[in-house]
């Protein structure tokens, strides 16, 4: 581990100034410290925002919820308002990491966590995200956990967050504070960049900008939500694919339908065309298949991740059947309940 300077910020101004000067923010540290130990990340200065006041609350607003940047994943998933009004968010968070990690991990930190692509995490391997121009061994290599949507020749790393998939589904916005003190709101879909030819640039955040909160709007009354994560073991594994969905049924039709996807994209994935296809229609297996085809139309696969095409299609079907009442919710075999 490279020696680094540590600043404990007492206020947001101090944190913003340090960040603008090139310091790396740390809160829970559940991802950053791992990367520092591996020397994938070697920041010269860490500014700890974990004690900055005013970032740790969940507040009800006219539009929905304002979730402070430092709210822990555990606290957010357990919040009674979230569980009642935005259960997909609770479900998504609880399907990620472990209890210990969720106790430390924060809302904004979760959004900004780095990919778990094995080549990114091994400094002895080339990686365009870690060392631009060095190459991408995931292509043609072990690509099981990589993305099939939003990829480029330079990078196929998947975005690892479950929470961000649910927030994308919920059309959440990040509240972003610039070092100068100005505040802007940015839909999550615009926060993340696809890799293109700059896979090291993962977000549209500007130097010195700090995510101070996430705003989650109310969901349509009478809608049903689901988060389904398929992975290599029942807990503590990243998604092979995940599907977040929200549907409101009206007279046998999907009056409103929206989906978001994890494990398949270089960023939390949303496909407006698929939502549009489903909306207003009667649910049917054929329609679900059509929607899957739309989502997967742009998929580019490797030998190791080609299974994600049928797996996402099948998982979409399972989730839509559940959301539209065509199939019962998962019985006791779905252990997510046990941790909620």
């Amino acid at each position: 581990m490279k020696p680094f300077e540590y600043i404990r910020a007492e206020g947001i101004d101090e944190a913003g100034t340090a960040a603008a000067g090139g310091a790396t923010l740390i809160a829970g540290g559940t991802n950053l410290l791992d990367l520092m130990k591996l020397q994938v990340a070697a920041p010269g200065t860490l500014v700890d925002i974990g004690h900055v006041p005013g970032l740790g609350d969940i507040e009800e607003t006219a539009e929905g919820l304002r979730i402070g940047a430092l709210v822990t994943n555990s606290a957010l998933a357990a919040d009674p308002r979230v569980r009642k009004g935005w259960p997909v968010l609770s479900r998504a968070i609880l399907s990620g990491a472990s209890g210990q990690i969720r106790n430390r991990a924060t809302t904004a930190g979760n959004l900004l966590q780095r990919t778990r692509c094995p080549y990114f995490q091994d400094p002895a391997s080339p990686c365009n995200k870690r060392e631009p121009g060095s190459g991408c061994p995931a292509k043609g290599g072990v690509s099981r956990m990589t993305a099939i949507l939003g990829t480029s020749e330079n990078c196929i790393a998947a975005h690892p967050s479950d929470m961000a998939v649910a927030m994308t589904l919920l059309e959440a916005e990040a509240e972003i504070r610039a070092a100068a003190g100005t505040v802007r709101h940015l839909p999550l879909g615009d926060l993340y960049r696809v890799p293109g030819d700059q896979p090291d640039e993962e977000t549209t955040l500007q130097p010195g900008e700090i995510i101070t909160a996430v705003h989650v709007p109310h969901v349509p009354a009478g809608s049903v939500q689901a988060y389904r994560k398929v992975r290599d073991r029942a807990s503590y594994a990243f998604a092979l694919v995940s599907v977040a969905g929200i549907v409101r049924m009206e007279e046998g039709r999907m009056a409103e339908a929206r989906l978001a996807f994890g494990g398949v994209g270089t960023k939390p994935w949303h496909d407006a065309e698929a939502d549009a296809l489903l909306t207003g229609r009667r649910p049917s297996e054929a329609l679900f298949g059509e929607a899957a085809q739309l989502v997967l139309a742009g998929a580019r696969t490797e030998e190791g991740n080609a299974f994600k095409v049928p797996l996402l299609s099948r998982t979409m079907k399972a989730v839509l059947r559940e959301l539209t009442g065509a199939a019962p919710a998962s019985p006791g075999t779905d252990r997510t309940e046990a941790y909620a």
Partner: peptide
Amino acid sequence: VTRDLASYHVPAHAD
């Protein structure tokens, strides 16, 4: 390539 306990999947409690 699976060089840690996050990627080498021993069964978790839920398994």
